[in-house]
Design a protein around this nucleic acid. Structure first.
Lengths: 173, 173
DNA sequence: TATTGTTATACTCTATAACTATA
DNA sequence: TATAGTTATAGAGTATAACAATA
């Protein structure tokens, strides 16, 4: 278990006198044993999530969208005419925290709040034309760069299996 | 796609006059369409991660350990004699942020910092007897409650496959 | 009285610069 | 000069209470 790329297994060793990579200038330490951490699902889950979000941000950087913002645009596109509470609840965002988020999107002209005529307390949310255009471009970037890279790493079938298991945990755990 | 438990498909409908669950007192709204959000791995990954961490906290609540604290104790147990920088780097914790975390563990007498005799700048970290005892109890709780519940939901083989894919992403993505 | 959007606020995480003591 | 631990600080993300407008 815990396969380990030990220093001794590195073929580049001994060829050059002092390899000096930026991260190992002085220490030359043996890598730590992950031990039972390797078996803890939550640990790998968290580390994987950070990697995925980092890559998402890189891939969609030209459009300046965070994963959370992208999820809001996607949801607004699929569910026109819903109010803030409905959108926020669906995404697991608390209503107070959704206000600043919407302010950001609205100030960039990606969506608009409109007072509902039925219930004047509610703000109906809609994508603007620009919002739809940005979303469309974002989807293409995500598919072509982000998800494609995942498929490359895991294979299409494994990626689908992974998604299904994660959705199951998110839904039923 | 996007299977949908629509209101019309709910067999409980029409039987009782006004079902009034706490979450749907007034709205009686159709559930939103998740749409392409269901296909976005990062989204399910994040939601799953939150669920897993919540459950971890519940399961190990008697010992008052967060996932991050548990990971530190595990790593200290497997790697005695390492310093703060080494432990923090391995866990992806920034050194400045690791200080307060260690303060917490040390004030609870779960680990100790000792000045290294070789390099008096370094703090060697070690579990205390109490730290080992708490870690041992925590491992039992995690195995018996947390991981067991995951196995129940996914099945042992699927759980292993999930772990491997997440580790792959964490390592190589 | 209850709900929607909002403000204020607080607490946790995370990230960076800079200090000190050692090397 | 560089490194280990530390401090200070700032920014996200998340959580709760309470208010005004409306129902």
């Amino acid at each position: 278990m815990t396969v380990s790329k030990t220093a001794a297994a590195d073929p580049a060793r001994g060829a050059r006198p002092a390899r000096k990579e930026p991260a190992e200038t002085a220490a030359e330490t043996t890598p730590l044993q992950m031990g039972e951490l390797s078996e803890l699902l939550g640990y790998s889950l968290k580390r994987a999530q950070l990697k995925i979000f980092e890559d998402f941000l890189r891939c969609v950087a030209p459009l300046q969208l965070t994963p959370a913002q992208f999820s809001v645009l996607l949801l607004l596109d699929q569910n026109p005419g819903r109010n803030q509470t409905e959108i926020a609840n669906t995404l697991g965002i608390l209503r107070p925290n959704f206000v600043a988020m919407l302010d950001g999107l609205e100030s960039r002209d990606l969506c608009v709040r409109m007072r509902s005529t039925n219930d004047r307390r509610s703000h109906i949310l809609m994508l603007t034309d620009k919002g739809r255009a940005v979303l469309s471009r974002a989807k293409k970037l995500v598919a072509a760069k982000h998800e494609a890279r995942l498929n490359e790493l895991l294979g299409s079938a494994n990626r689908a299996a992974l998604l299904e298991m994660l959705a199951t945990i998110a839904r039923e755990f």
